[in-house]
């Protein structure tokens, strides 16, 4: 994690998936707090508050409210993956260049790597985990990606699907050229692009027929 310079051992272990899988959210917050106290000596005081001190943040994700303690530097992506254990949203480039981290914020597609989690407070976030119906039925876009074989390794797929759902909703899936243009923020290193275009069209028609 590049955003924790000079970290101690406990801080590093915090971001390992094995640790997180075992830890409850409350315990995670407590460890963050201890890590911050250990680092007060190197903090830059701003307005009398140590900026490394985790602050309580309330995130609304897939209709559920979560209260967690976060360093302000935490991206929405890291908050989702490391703190809420919603690992469906993927980290590709972490610089807004690949689209793997695409989620919906208030119904619009956005890049969670370029959003600070504290700034997402008060907004409704939807991730790939929130797309399928509660009964487990796949969203038409998820089904279309399966039907059209629209992936190989699958790493970009959650971002592709979140982007594609929004693309249809925006009305930017009328023809192949539009789909390619409005899906250009989601890179696929396996180059499944023709199949992705086919999947978007299948889902577009399925959504319309409702």
């Amino acid at each position: 994690m590049a955003d924790h310079p000079g970290t101690g051992k406990s801080r590093l272990s915090l971001h390992r998936r094995g640790f997180l899988t075992a830890a409850a959210t409350g315990a995670t917050a407590a460890v963050v707090a201890r890590g911050a106290e250990a680092q007060t000596s190197e903090a830059t005081p701003a307005a009398g508050v140590n900026p490394r001190t985790p602050r309580p943040v309330t995130l609304s994700v897939n209709g559920q409210t979560h209260e967690i303690g976060l360093d302000a530097r935490t991206s929405l992506l890291d908050a989702l993956r490391d703190h809420l254990r919603l690992t469906g949203t993927k980290k590709g480039c972490d610089h807004g260049q690949c689209g793997a981290c695409t989620v919906h914020i208030d119904g619009k597609r956005a890049l969670s790597c370029m959003s600070f989690a504290v700034m997402a407070e008060g907004h409704e976030i939807t991730t790939i985990e929130g797309l399928a119906a509660p009964a487990g039925d796949l969203h038409p876009m998820q089904q279309a990606f399966v039907d059209q074989d629209a992936f190989q390794c699958g790493y970009c797929t959650p971002g592709q699907i979140m982007s594609a759902v929004a693309c249809v909703k925006e009305g930017h899936a009328e023809n192949d050229d539009d789909i390619r243009e409005f899906m250009s923020g989601n890179l696929c290193r396996c180059a499944a692009y023709p199949n992705i275009v086919a999947a978007v069209k299948q889902a577009r028609d399925a959504i319309r027929e409702g």
Partner: peptide
């Protein structure tokens, strides 16, 4: 410019 995700933000 950019991508629709970035333009939304």
């Amino acid at each position: 410019a950019a991508t629709r995700q970035i333009r939304n933000m």
